[in-house]
């Protein structure tokens, strides 16, 4: 009976170790799935219009997701995997164009046009405001007695 505690410990360990290993494998799989999802969301399904390979139900998208998973399991980084797809399909595979070369036009163009449009609007409005003459009080025609009487009557009727 002296060895009873050791036996119990061995028994507990022999049960818990396989569970721990299985849990670790599940956690790793979940992480790979998560990474795969993040990569798949940035790649365009080449046979669909403006749909990522994560969203697409096409067979090709399904196969691409499998390839991402395989490469992640081999230890490739998300950037390496994206570079692989880029080397096969070119820029078209990326849902968001790369921020380089002519693509800067696509990224910055709308903002630049908005700025130019805003400047154009500001200049036009400024010119309109400058051209509009505000009539001063002394330039207004004088009020005759009849009109003054009418205004006073109107004011009195409102006070009542």
């Amino acid at each position: 009976m002296k060895n009873a505690p050791i036996l119990i410990l061995v028994l507990i360990l022999s049960i818990s170790i396989p569970f721990t290993a299985a849990e670790a494998a599940t956690v790793e799989e979940e992480q790979i799935d998560l990474q795969m999802r993040e990569i798949a969301k940035t790649l365009r399904c080449t046979i669909c219009q403006n749909e990522s390979i994560w969203e697409s139900q096409a067979e090709l998208a399904h196969q691409m997701r499998d390839i991402i998973k395989e490469r992640l399991m081999k230890g490739e980084s998300p950037d390496e995997i994206r570079a692989y797809f880029l080397s096969r399909y070119g820029d078209y595979i990326l849902l968001a164009p790369q921020k380089s070369g002519l693509n800067w036009l696509l990224w910055g163009g709308p903002f630049a046009l908005l700025a130019v449009g805003g400047l154009f609007l500001y200049r036009t409005l400024s010119r309109w405001v400058a051209q509009t003459t505000i009539t001063k009080q002394e330039d207004l025609p004088p009020i005759d007695d009849q009109l003054r009487k009418r205004i006073e009557q109107e004011l009195h009727s409102r006070e009542d």
Binding site: T46, I47, E59, L60, Q63, M64, D66, I67, R88, Y89, G90
Partner: peptide
């Protein structure tokens, strides 16, 4: 069957 060759060659259709 897994589309590996097609994807390696950047096949669209």
């Amino acid at each position: 069957p897994k589309g590996a060759i097609s994807i390696d060659y950047g096949v669209y259709g």
